Amino acid sequence: MFMRSTVALLAALALTACDRVDPDSPLGKRKAIFKDMLKTSEDMGGMLRGRLPFDGAKFAQGAVKLDGLAHAPWQHFPQVRDAGASSARAEVWQRQARFQALARELEGATGALLAVTRAQPLQAAQLQAPMNKVEAACKACHNEFRNH
Rank of each mutant, 00 (worst) to 15 (best):
M131W: 05
Q96E: 13
T110V: 05
L106S: 00
A140D: 09
T110M: 05
Q96H: 10
R146E: 03
A103T: 08
T117Y: 03
A85R: 09
R95W: 10
R81T: 04
A115E: 15
S87D: 14
A101V: 06
A103Y: 00
V92W: 10
R89V: 01
R118Q: 15
K133S: 15
Q94A: 15
G111V: 04
N143Y: 10
V92Y: 09
R89H: 08
A137H: 01
L113K: 03
E105D: 14
F145H: 00
A124D: 09
A129P: 08
T110P: 14
Q128R: 15
L114E: 04
R118N: 11
H142Q: 07
R81I: 06
G111R: 00
K133P: 09
G111Y: 04
A101H: 07
K133V: 09
A103F: 04
F145G: 04
L127G: 09
A124P: 12
L127K: 04
D82P: 07
N147C: 03
K139H: 13
G111L: 02
R104M: 12
V116F: 06
C141H: 02
A103K: 02
V92F: 11
G108A: 02
Q94T: 11
R104S: 11
P130G: 06
C141M: 05
K139S: 15
A115I: 08
E107Y: 01
V134E: 06
R98V: 15
A137R: 01
Q128A: 14
K133H: 13
A140F: 06
D82E: 14
E144V: 03
A83T: 08
R146F: 10
C141W: 02
A112I: 06
A103I: 06
N132S: 14
Q128N: 10
L106V: 00
R146N: 07
L113F: 03
Q94R: 11
N143W: 09
A90N: 10
L102Y: 00
W93M: 09
C141L: 02
V92R: 04
D82Y: 01
E135F: 10
Q100D: 12
A90T: 13
C141P: 02
E135D: 11
K139I: 07
E91F: 08
R98F: 06
L113G: 03
C138S: 04
A97K: 13
Q94S: 14
G108L: 03
Q123H: 14
A140Q: 08
Q128D: 12
L114P: 07
A124Y: 12
S86I: 02
A119G: 12
G108P: 00
R89I: 03
A119W: 02
R81L: 04
E105G: 02
Q126S: 14
Q126D: 14
A112T: 12
